[in-house]
């Protein structure tokens, strides 16, 4: 991991020195050991802020949208899942290809920071992380910890499809094999098996907790509408009231709005302060799209049309 960090820094430095880009967006060490923060670097001296490890869960691709009208080029550090977002943004014409430089890093999985923080002393500082295939060894100033990937990784990493970036101008390190620790749609299928009442009760319980902070929308790399339907006042499709009815509408609308474009990066789930399993809604759509149209995960290939945005005569019509 130290090696990769070094290579990322070198690459960023080179790009900035050669004036190929004006800004590098990457991961930097956060205030806590198990957290990283996005860093925006505009000078070659600043690259030492960049880091890489099993705590780089953020999807930085959304920041590209902020720079779409800014002068100059932007380089971005992406994982496999983030690279799908980049493709999606390119296909949506949100950013132009010649304005961005993608530094792809094959990712061995990201740990859930809460689980790690529970075990590591709060005053410890990070020394090094080592990837041992099925586990990460996190070396800290107060001792070494071993975290099994199966138990400590984020769910989206357990079912990862693209550990290697699908779009990259520079790839750092070696490509990694696809390794899954769980069935991709196991959780969705479990929920589908439930009876109507149980399903309804389950989601009522989840949706009633929603604070409508819109963090899931703001973090989403495919939510790029200039005026969001939830902010719209005239007509006001979804009112600002926070009750079960409105929350249900909000979540269904949000999930359906990104249907066929959602890249399954799992950021909505991660940022939710109320731990609502938002990704389960998106995954349900992914599963149906796979069943009905046999469409791959959006963004996993360049130039892929959205499954709900195209029509072919062979499309199933189950509602007729």
């Amino acid at each position: 991991m130290m090696n990769l960090t070094k290579q990322i820094r070198e690459q960023a430095k080179k790009l900035l020195e050669e004036k190929k880009v004006d800004l590098v967006i990457g991961f930097g060490q956060g205030t806590e050991l198990a957290r990283t923060t996005p860093v925006f670097i505009d000078s070659p001296e600043g690259v030492s802020a960049l880091t890489w490890g099993p705590f780089c869960a953020n999807n930085l691709a959304k920041y590209l949208v902020d720079y779409k009208n800014a002068p100059g080029n932007v380089a971005i550090v992406v994982k496999g899942c983030d690279s799908r977002s980049v493709i999606r943004l390119l296909d949506d014409n949100q950013i132009s290809r010649d304005k961005i430089v993608v530094i792809g890093v094959p990712c061995a999985g990201q740990l859930e920071w809460q689980k790690v923080a529970d075990e590591v002393k709060p005053d410890a500082t990070l020394k090094e992380t080592v990837d041992n295939g099925d586990s990460f060894v996190v070396k800290t100033s107060t001792g070494d910890h071993t975290f099994n990937k199966k138990d400590y990784m984020l769910h989206r990493c357990l079912v990862c499809e693209n550990p290697n970036p699908v779009i990259a101008d520079f790839t750092i390190g070696e490509e990694l094999p696809v390794k899954n620790y769980a069935e991709r749609f196991a959780e969705v299928e479990e929920l589908e098996q439930l009876g109507l009442e149980e399903k309804s009760a389950y989601w009522d319980k989840q949706f009633s907790r929603c604070l409508r902070c819109y963090a899931c929308r703001n973090v989403c790399s495919v939510c790029t509408c200039e005026l969001c339907v939830f902010d719209q006042m005239k007509p006001m499709w979804v009112s600002k009231r926070t009750n079960l009815s409105e929350n249900t509408v909000f979540h269904i609308t949000r999930a359906f709005h990104v249907a066929g474009r959602c890249v399954d990066c799992g950021e909505c789930d991660r940022v939710c302060p109320m731990d609502i399993p938002i990704r389960k809604l998106n995954q349900k759509i992914h599963k149906d799209l796979k069943d009905l149209f046999d469409s791959p995960t959006p963004g996993s290939k360049e130039g892929l049309l959205s499954a709900l945005g195209e029509f072919s005569l062979g499309d199933p019509e189950e509602f007729m």
Binding site: V229, W237, V238, I252, T253, F256
Partner: peptide, 10 residues
């Protein structure tokens, strides 16, 4: 729009 349908139910 799917929002119409949801709104109607609501």
């Amino acid at each position: 729009n799917p929002a119409f349908v949801l709104r109607a139910f609501q």
